[in-house]
Design a protein around this nucleic acid. Structure first.
Lengths: 337, 337
DNA sequence: TTGTAAGCGTTATCAA
DNA sequence: TTGATAACGCTTACAA
């Protein structure tokens, strides 16, 4: 049997409420009793029962992280782990616990609804890359604290953290151009996913700003989100003639790695013939040949920032929605000439 | 305000206990009321408060995963992600939630103690690779359900899952020998970590069984657990003379990748001059040059198995300690000749 | 088949 | 500065 507040009270010869006050550091308790109670708590290895505690106080010490419904997908993307680490670090520092929610198996809304009404957690961080309106609407309706990781489409009164993906797309393209590339392709656009759209927008802005006449439409390689490779025939087509691209911006590292592989099989050398750059700075990019130049988006910091905003939302439920942009930086390796 | 069991009861014109019985699917309730109550619950989007529920029933719907104290370390090893995925998948299927515990920052025992006495979780899976006796003793003493992932030193009455690391070391070495390697080195032994010791034992057994006279002691490269590379000078020494190894078994992939890199800088070709094999099958191994031959230890399945055992421990607290060995297999790529 | 009442371990509101 | 007492939302004997 676990030791409870009552037993501590009895042993100390005080009432449970006094013990509770000691626990919460209430000032209006004599130093004497405080001392005595503290001592007994230590000796008995007493820990307050968090369940009982939050049941009555309505303060929660757990926050949930909602992963995209397909646990299989999300938990194999290193990106999510870095984010998760950031969240746990932030949470641990503030005495919070992190609950993993993989979407319950059924639909995602259901998983989040369960979290909201289940009473276990006080708030939730949505990692789901394609935030479904229904989920967000429902969260808002119930005034349940949440933060979205990734710039949502409807970004009115909601907390979110993200990189500035437009800027990132632009910076990356500028970088390529500054290294002498003249014809830059873009791989990985999926119109349904804002992140890919934003990076592509940046790419276009950079191109325009540099005064290039539009590149062939074959340079824009769409890839359904989550797919790890460009359809080979389309890639080959884009890189066929003499007017082929001399660089590719890839929307994530995994895609970039596969593109490099495909390029090699076409007899094109990276970076001599084609420069390649990715996003996310995954571990595998350090070991490829050549090592992949990429953008460090600082997923861990994204996670920490997300937790930070959630904490704020928890403490000041009526504060205005906040946003946070986490800086990124290019990691120069050898896949760009 | 969240809808509670009382309101449902009132709306249905029954008592709270009746609603509770409907909730738990008690048989002794008329089909009529069951129907009516169910209907109202649906319409009101009612969800039982898990906190209140487990407070009184002493049944928990959350299990914890205790990561090694240094969250930084563990959450950057892909192995842990795969394990985590396995655990969440298993948990989700059984209606459980997974709580991440990064060890609270201070010492690890403290984190686990918090979990035990905090009343939030019903059991814990220890991922901590170097299980500290104190933690385990304390868990046992309090009869708190737990499962260790990794074969613990003192494996008496405790649940654990693991690969058969001795067998794995043996199979891997046999594989190398069968491909014509004659002088096999071993990198990554750390006497404090059973996993590395076991794999090394297998390596030795295979060597002996194949009838080789003992290889030079320089072939045994110790590396502190967690370190990602062999000390370069020692590696160079081992691969100096004409009697250098023609193969290396590396205790994990990251180490193998770094060894390959180092070997290249010594002017040795993989696999023509030296064959390299790793463990864990991390993503980066697919993209190295040459792609890394490795052992798939099925971390995800380890995770699922761990949850399975924990579930059993939760339901039958007095059952005997169970162990489970998860099969492994060699993933043949190009780093072995 | 259903209701009443007690209690899970804590906090919070009154009084004292 | 402290102590009763009533919740929090639920389950579960014990009655009816």
């Amino acid at each position: 049997m676990r030791v409870t507040i009552k037993e501590i009270a009895q042993m100390a010869g005080v009432s449970p409420s006094t013990v509770s006050r000691v626990l919460s550091g209430s000032s209006r308790i004599s130093a004497d009793t405080t001392e005595r109670v503290r001592d007994i708590m230590r000796r008995m290895h007493y820990r307050p029962n968090q369940l009982a505690r939050s049941l009555v106080s309505r303060k929660h010490t757990i926050v949930a992280v909602a992963l995209p419904s397909a646990a299989q997908t999300s938990l194999s993307d290193p990106f999510f782990y870095d984010v998760l680490r950031g969240i746990s670090v932030g949470a641990a520092r503030e005495g919070y616990h992190v609950l993993l929610s993989t979407g319950g198996g059924d639909n995602e809304d259901d998983g989040v609804a369960e979290l909201m009404h289940g009473g276990i957690v006080g708030g939730v961080i949505l990692l789901t890359s394609k935030v479904e309106d229904e989920t967000v609407e429902s969260l808002l309706f119930h005034r349940f604290p949440f933060v979205v990781l990734g710039h949502p489409v409807r970004d009115g009164q909601i907390h979110w953290v993200d990189n500035d993906n437009v800027a990132a797309g632009q910076v990356v393209t500028d970088y390529l151009l500054s290294r002498g590339c003249k014809r830059v392709a873009f791989a990985g656009l999926d119109p349904h996913y804002r992140m890919t759209v934003d990076r592509c927008t940046g790419y276009r802005l950079a191109q325009k700003a540099a005064g290039f006449s539009p590149w062939p439409s074959a340079f824009l390689l769409e890839v359904p989100y989550g797919d790890t490779r460009v359809e080979p025939s389309r890639l080959r087509a884009a890189f066929a003639g003499p007017d082929r691209p001399d660089a590719v911006v890839c929307v994530n590292d995994l895609l970039a790695l596969e593109v490099m592989r495909e390029l090699a099989s076409l007899g094109l050398r990276v970076p001599q013939d084609v420069s390649v750059i990715g996003f996310n700075n995954i571990q595998a990019g350090r070991f490829s040949t050549p090592p992949l130049t990429t953008v460090e988006i600082d997923a861990e910091r994204l996670g920490q920032a997300a937790f930070g905003l959630l904490l704020r939302a928890l403490n000041q439920p009526d504060a205005e929605a906040a946003h946070e942009l986490v800086p990124f930086r290019i990691v120069e390796r050898a896949s760009v000439r």
